[in-house]
Simulated scan of single mutants.
Amino acid sequence: MTVTESRPPFPPFTRETAIAKVRVAEDGWNGRDPARVSLAYTPDSRWRNRSEFLIGREQIVAFLTRKWAVELDYRLIKELWAFEVDRIAVRFAYEWHDVQGRWFRSYGNENWAFDGSGLMRERHASINDVAIEAADRLFHWNASGPRPVDYPSLNDFGL
């Protein structure tokens, strides 16, 4: 297997490896590089993101390219909700603004299923957007990079 064909940690997950898998996913999405992010998914990965259905890395790259072209200064926090052998459920929130400068916080849940090499084969996401004032933002680390290790979690923020 090449580096792009596997993504540790691998199933079966423990609490610790599930938490690590969630953090790796968060860090990847905060990097906002669609091609790089797509490599964490199987070549035929199946997604439901809100009301959009995607199959495969090519569609994932196109989707993420569109997403991050309109969700500017995107910053994401994910937290483990539950896990089992090869599945992980997360809750998350992310903040972003549109081209008019209006800020939003998006809340959601994702259900993930992995293959034996740690690549995500299914992703089901339900997401709601809430308009917020710029002064109400909570996620203030450097743009286009991982959340600092000591930065507060969703629980810390009461979200």
Rank of each mutant, 00 (worst) to 15 (best):
F114G: 00
F92V: 02
D115L: 01
K21L: 07
V61G: 04
P148Q: 05
Y151R: 06
T4H: 13
P152T: 14
T17E: 07
S51A: 11
W112F: 13
S106V: 04
E84Q: 13
Y107R: 14
I77D: 05
P12V: 01
R46N: 02
W29N: 03
F10A: 01
I60M: 09
N30Y: 10
E95I: 11
D136N: 15
W47A: 08
S6F: 08
N128R: 15
L76F: 07
D150T: 06
R15M: 03
A89S: 02
N128A: 10
S144A: 12
W81F: 12
G108L: 08
I127Y: 02
H124N: 13
L54M: 12
E52N: 05
I55T: 15
K67F: 11
A125N: 01
S38K: 06
R102P: 00
D73R: 08
E58Q: 14
N109G: 09
G145S: 14
A125Y: 00
P12S: 01
R66Y: 03
T14W: 13
E110M: 14
G118K: 12
R57Y: 05
R32E: 08
W68H: 12
R75T: 06
E95T: 10
G145Y: 09
E133V: 05
V22E: 10
W47Y: 15
L39D: 02
A25C: 10
A20C: 02
W96R: 03
S153W: 11
W68M: 05
F13C: 03
V24C: 00
G116M: 05
R57I: 05
M120Y: 00
W103R: 03
T2V: 04
V3I: 08
G116H: 07
P148H: 08
A35Y: 06
D98T: 01
L72I: 08
V90N: 09
I88P: 00
Y107E: 06
W141I: 06
G145C: 10
T14C: 00
A69G: 06
L72R: 13
I55V: 12
S126F: 13
L39I: 05
L76I: 03
G116Q: 14
T42K: 12
R15L: 15
H140S: 14
L80W: 08
A131V: 15
E71W: 03
S106M: 13
A93C: 12
G108D: 13
L80I: 11
R137T: 14
E95W: 11
G108C: 06
V85A: 09
I77L: 13
A40K: 02
Y41S: 01
V24Q: 09
W68C: 00
R102E: 07
D73T: 03
F114R: 15
P34H: 08
